[in-house]
């Protein structure tokens, strides 16, 4: 299963380098440069993981996070911020982000691990749901 990742950041450099990195790792990656166009993309196809900056013009990352939590509760969200304040961190926690990663992104391993955790979490649930559905069908059509 190739997971779909949405990267939201108003800085094109970060957006593009992250997109390249995760495309190479085999994910399907889309990008948006603000919250509004991210919401539009989210309504058009399902994303497993959204990585979003907090401070963006227009709709900021926290608003986006809030919308995702109510509208697409199964989507995992990883927040990034360059403005390291306790308030930002607590907002992420309060609205149910998976984690919050501080910029500058010197070591991308932290994001890698966060994405992996999100995917593992979803796969764990898919397995659970299949078990819920009962035996028999599981082996039939593994995707």
């Amino acid at each position: 299963m190739s997971s779909r990742v949405l990267i939201v950041d108003d800085e094109a450099d970060i957006r593009n380098s992250l997109a390249r990195r995760y495309r190479l790792k085999g994910f399907v990656v889309d990008t948006a440069d603000n919250g509004v166009s991210a919401v539009k993309l989210l309504s058009e196809q399902p994303y497993q993981v959204v990585i979003s900056d907090i401070k963006m013009p227009g709709m900021d990352g926290i608003d986006l996070l809030r919308i995702i939590r109510t509208e697409y509760p199964m989507t995992r969200v990883i927040m990034m911020t360059g403005y390291v304040t306790l308030d930002n961190g607590l907002s992420c926690l309060r609205h149910g982000a998976d984690t919050c990663i501080f910029k500058p992104l010197q070591d991308l391993k932290e994001i890698d691990a966060a994405i992996q955790r999100a995917i593992d979490y979803l796969q764990h649930w898919e397995l659970k749901l299949l078990q819920l559905k009962g035996m028999g069908d599981q082996s039939k059509d593994p995707v």
């Binding site: 497993q48 299949l130 593994p142 995707v143």
Partner: peptide
């Protein structure tokens, strides 16, 4: 992930 990427059994069940 388009709908074809979802586990088909799960999708049918749903």
């Amino acid at each position: 992930m388009t709908s074809s990427d979802v586990n088909q059994d799960l999708l049918r069940g749903f």
